[in-house]
Write a protein that binds this DNA or RNA. Structure first.
Length: 509
RNA sequence: GGCCCGUUCGUCUAGGGGUUAGGACGCCGCCCUUUCACGGCGGAAACACGGGUUCAAUUCCCGUACGGGCUACCA
């Protein structure tokens, strides 16, 4: 029985975008489904692109979604360290091993020389120069230089990289779990740099070495890696690790809501929607982002939405808890084509979750947004407001926004609808209603409803004229939940106060 | 440009050689209703195109078009 071990291996180059979260999610789901292990590995081999705080951000994001790894930096595990920068020492040995068995070679060409070469090729009309099994013959490397010259350069401390010695005239074929059989001609492949001049490995080397050492069984990653998978297969062959080579599954990309290309961080501002899990503060305003959390998403809802971007259970069920997702997940049901990011659908999922969340928990979820507005009240009251408003809420921010009147005085009255109804008769009825409410023996929604309704009926008044005015008096707007429930929640003093204040205001409209 | 991957309603997708091509979001209409919602019911809406293979193709094959990705001493 083989052990299922998968990893999520992001680079800490900035805030983790939502596509990365989905990759993490699919890895997590697969691991849980198979009773395997989900590992987090930080691929920080490019010190030039390292961004402080990015690693914490990745972990915080996974934590928020509930996608906790069982092995990783700060978590531990038997295959650590889980940060590639801390594994630096070992990669060079592996690269050297490849040089020794002829699967790789030293290359002394400097970046400047390479640039010059590309430039001169361009001038000759060749727009795609690559360092491959043909062009390497005219470059400076241990395949073209004499043994003595190579030793001399090495001893001299000349800068060098180690490149993969891609064989000629071969076909590399592998079975991708999502796409089926995929093959590449080695003559189309370049001799990828394995070890950089600074001694750090490139993604390709570090990835293969670590996946091997960490006993990864399945590599589930974005489609952008599909073209380089041929190199990775070659690397497994070169190391003699074919028997334990992981299986590959390349995920379709997440595309922009409209237009061409994949979803980018700029789309967040463009479409006023989140493309990151959590907020990210950068020095520059345009580099700072709000996340799904700040937009008012429930993490489980965001997860549910993300899971369905490129995967489906094969049934008509759409609402899945994380546990249900783990149970239902299978790689076979992952789609092949890119999926557009549909923000309306994301909001719909969140709405479904808001409706299904138990009242007390919903109150807790809405709490931060209510506190942010400076509305200080009790947990119980917030929960009651949330329960009353839940049918009208799509995002967690809605409670504090469209339900603001539950926490503060009415800020604006709907004048148009006041004018249509406010006259001497209604004013008289309105005032009598205030007395009625003030003297209610019971103050629950049902008693209020029957008492006020029968009063209106007995006096030959129109409900369509009085109720909207009461509503506006309490909330300022025509929109909102049942008036009697609002009255009950606002309480007697609160209701009477608003009603009295409204009478004064209505006269001025 | 080269290589690789893909293509079912506007969007996410189910399906698969013979189906009224199913669901969801969004949109429209009706119902419920003191408002707005929620909910219920209904509607418009898709197999990119051209060739094969086949009794039969949306489904299989090949092209084309379109879309996407890769093409760094970045991941």
């Amino acid at each position: 029985m083989s052990n299922i071990r998968v990893r999520f291996a992001p680079s800490p180059t900035g805030p983790l975008h939502i596509g990365g979260v989905r990759t993490a999610l699919y890895n997590y789901l697969f691991a849980k489904k198979m009773g395997g292990t989900f590992i987090l590995r930080i691929e920080d081999t490019d010190q030039g692109r390292y961004v402080a705080g990015a690693e914490d951000y990745i972990i915080d994001s996974l934590k928020w979604f509930g996608l906790l790894p069982t092995e990783g930096p700060g978590i531990g595990g038997e295959h650590g360290p889980y940060r590639q920068s801390e594994r630096k020492a070992m990669y060079g040995q592996y690269a050297l091993q490849l040089v020794e068995n002829g699967k790789a070679y030293f290359a002394f060409d400097t970046p400047e020389e390479l640039d010059a070469k590309r430039q001169s090729e361009r001038e000759k009309g060749n727009h795609n120069f690559r360092y491959d099994n043909v062009t390497r013959n005219e470059m400076k490397n241990s395949l073209t230089l004499s043994k003595e010259e190579v030793s001399r350069r090495l001893e001299n401390g000349d800068a060098y990289t180690i490149r993969l010695n891609v064989p000629k005239d071969e076909t590399v074929t592998f079975t991708d779990l999502v796409r089926g059989e995929v093959s590449f001609q080695t003559n189309e492949l370049d001799d990828k740099v394995l070890l950089k001049a600074d001694g750090m490995p490139t993604y390709h080397l570090a990835n293969i070495v670590d996946d091997h050492l960490m006993e990864i069984s399945h590599v589930i990653r974005g489609e952008e890696w599909l073209p380089s998978t041929a190199h990775h297969i070659l690397l497994y062959q070169s190391f003699g690790w074919e028997d334990t080579r992981p299986q590959f599954a390349h995920l379709p990309l997440i595309l922009k809501p409209v237009g061409n290309g994949k979803l980018s961080k700029r789309d967040g501002a463009k479409f006023n929607m989140p493309v990151f899990p959590l907020k990210w503060d950068a020095e520059k305003e345009e580099e700072s982002f709000l996340g799904f959390r700040e937009f008012g998403f429930i993490p489980a809802a965001a997860i549910n939405f993300l899971a369905f971007l490129g995967w489906n259970p094969g049934t008509e069920q759409e609402i899945f808890s994380l546990d249900e997702l783990c149970e239902a997940f299978s790689i076979e049901n992952i789609g092949k084509s890119g999926a557009r990011f549909d923000y309306d659908k994301a909001k719909w999922f969140n709405q479904q979750y808001i409706q299904a969340t138990e009242t007390k928990a919903l109150g807790k979820m809405a709490m931060p947004f209510i506190a942010e507005k400076g509305f200080g009240t009790s947990e119980a009251y917030i929960a009651s407001v949330c329960d009353l408003m839940r049918d009208r809420a799509v995002l967690l921010t809605d409670f504090a926004e469209t339900g603001a009147y539950f926490f503060e005085e009415v800020q604006n009255y709907d004048d148009q609808n006041i004018v249509k109804r406010w006259d001497d008769d209604t004013k008289a009825a309105f005032n009598k209603t205030i007395d009625l409410v003030a003297n209610m023996p019971e103050f629950d929604a049902d008693s209020l409803e029957s008492t006020i309704k029968s009063f209106i009926k007995d006096n030959g008044l129109k409900m369509g004229k009085i109720f909207p005015l009461i509503r506006i008096a309490l909330a300022g707007t025509m929109k909102g939940p049942d008036v009697f429930k609002m009255i009950a929640l606002l309480g007697r003093p609160g209701t009477i106060g608003r009603l009295r204040k409204a009478v004064e205001y209505f006269d001025t409209v």
